[in-house]
Write a protein that binds this DNA or RNA. Structure first.
Lengths: 200, 200, 200, 200
DNA sequence: CATGAATGAGTTTTCATTCAT
DNA sequence: TATGAATGAAAACTCATTCAT
């Protein structure tokens, strides 16, 4: 007699799982073959759903890639900046950011590849670009604060961000391409390098 | 008086010019929309030739992207490493490399975008990968030499390269996205930052 | 009352029917215009399906022509040689073969034209050639047996086959080209002629 | 002083040779790959002329195939029926025809393949069909005469022609496909077979 | 007159999306 | 609601024909 609720519950859970399966499949394929290089039915196949089903969860291929982009850009930002140690010394704050970035990138190599590869796509909608911008705000705030404390160099914030983020991406790409293994030692080393790049 | 072989010269130039026009159009479109996102007739149109003509110069779309990749990867390497000041102090050698890289990137923003975007594509053939590898050799040699002289940090060469190249790409991407204007001052600043990242 | 599994049956029939419609359309067009002279969308149109649909049933135009070839070569062989009257006198065995061949050809004029026209195509795959070869075996056996019984001439089997099959094809081509009407009388006459060609 | 005439003569000879080279190349390619399966530039290449040159000699691909068809259909007819021994006995007349056919087919295997393969093409123009018809007339006359003399069977002329020509084509196809070697013995054998098919 | 590079219409094939079941 | 077969618009590529040289 409780079959109705249970049924609904199961269905709902199942729907969530389906959505996640589609996003996971899309992440894997988009990160490797790019947006235009990936066929929708392939995504559906890998997700274990029918091609038509995918369109019940995402209005179009573009909607899918935007959902994926926003999801992971947000996750990355949250991972890096949540519970930020606002009162710690700058060096330690920097260490926190760097370690969170690299740990995230190490654990989710496809995500980083996906975000970098699709960063520029003209299929990204305004919301994706908004997420993109909003992610930067706390980072900018941190840097400006640190510069104010004369802890890091008085260069334009954009320069600091470009260098640090670029170095980070370069490092993970080397890992991705198996040119490098990301040991703790390497991580520490890289952190020290990048810190010296920006410290005052 | 300078009219010798004008006829032949013009003809030859015309074929060469066409080839160059196609490569230029492809560079522009591939760098903005990616390989799979760019239709061949679009490239032909932008190059001012018929669609069939493109196939007289390049066997296939893949052959085109590979020719483009090899051309520019080579140009970049030549620009950066030719006439390298082998006897200069490391700091000055580094300055030379950095300035050549950034100047090249500044003057050829699409080239950098193209090379980064297509770095991973499975449509790149073995020759493209070979060019890729050969470009790295002199850079590795420079770094190892500098490490031997105790001028830069004794980190794995791959780490040094990843950080410096990553920072470089990050910087130019910021420029490309109009988040930053590449003044001489910014360039000097960035150079100083990156040098401090790797110096001993 | 006979409605069991009507749904499934209809579905299955529908897919089968589509496949058959494509094969029928291809037979008609290939037999008249040849393989290279027939555009795939024309086949699809005549079959009443979309161009893309054809590719759900056949991997390529080549796969289509091979499926068609194997199908009809097999049908022809089965029609002619199945339930072969092994114990009948040679003359009657010959009559059986000849009548079956001509009846088949008369009822399926396009099939014969198709098989003859595509007999040599370099788009035929190994399987098609294997079918081709396997069709000959029982015919060869029959002829050798008849020669052993001194019922037909002791010429090389290939010569016998070439003459009889050639005469058969010539006859049906004349019919196809409306130079001749295939009455029972003509059939009997032709059979008598060909028999006298090979009888001892 | 004689340079003008010589020049013209050379040119004319050269033009003829060119035309012949094109026809020879077309024969080879059309007979193997069919009309639609053969690219015009390929014919030009094999003929050793430029693609544009071919169009100075033949108005179009269709004009080329028609010229080729008419040429060889005529050659074949001339070879078989010229200097026909009108007063010889029927059996000997038949032997003459058969031997001329097979000799021609043996010496020009590509011609036969070409004529058979293109016999039906809708790119053949009215003139080609007229040649086709005119070739038959003397053959029909011979057969009717022989029937009148009660030397061959009183079957419809079309049947006689279809059987004999069919057998001939079947034989040469077997040779073409290397299933058979055309020795004098085989030729005699086949002639005897076919004669028994039609003799009274 | 000979050429062969240039072309765009036409070819085979793929794929994002829809819709009957 | 989930499906996956069907589709046609668009992709990569070819080729008969033209025309500047």
């Amino acid at each position: 007699m409780s079959g109705r609720a249970l049924h609904t519950t199961n269905r709902a859970a199942s729907a969530d799982e389906r959505r996640e399966a589609i996003l996971a499949a899309a992440l894997e394929l988009f990160s490797e073959r790019g947006f235009h290089g990936t066929a929708v039915p392939l995504v559906a196949d890998k997700a274990g759903v029918g091609a038509g089903t995918l369109y019940r969860y995402f209005e179009s291929k573009e909607a899918l890639v935007n959902a994926l982009y926003q999801r992971w850009k947000g996750e990355f930002a949250a991972h890096v900046m949540s519970n930020f140690p606002v009162d710690a010394p700058t060096r330690q704050q920097f260490a926190t950011i760097w370690q969170r970035m690299t740990r995230f990138g190490h654990q989710n190599p496809r995500v980083l590849q996906f975000l970098e590869l699709h960063h520029h796509g003209d299929y990204l909608d305004e919301q994706s670009r908004a997420v993109e911008r909003s992610v930067l705000d706390p980072v900018v705030a941190f840097i400006e604060d640190a510069q104010h404390k004369q802890a890091i160099k008085p260069a334009p914030v954009e320069v600091i961000i470009a260098l640090v983020h670029g170095a980070f991406v370069g490092l993970l790409r080397a890992v991705q391409e198996k040119r490098l293994v990301l040991t703790d030692e390497v991580l520490k080393l890289a952190e020290e390098c990048v810190w010296e790049a920006v410290r005052r």
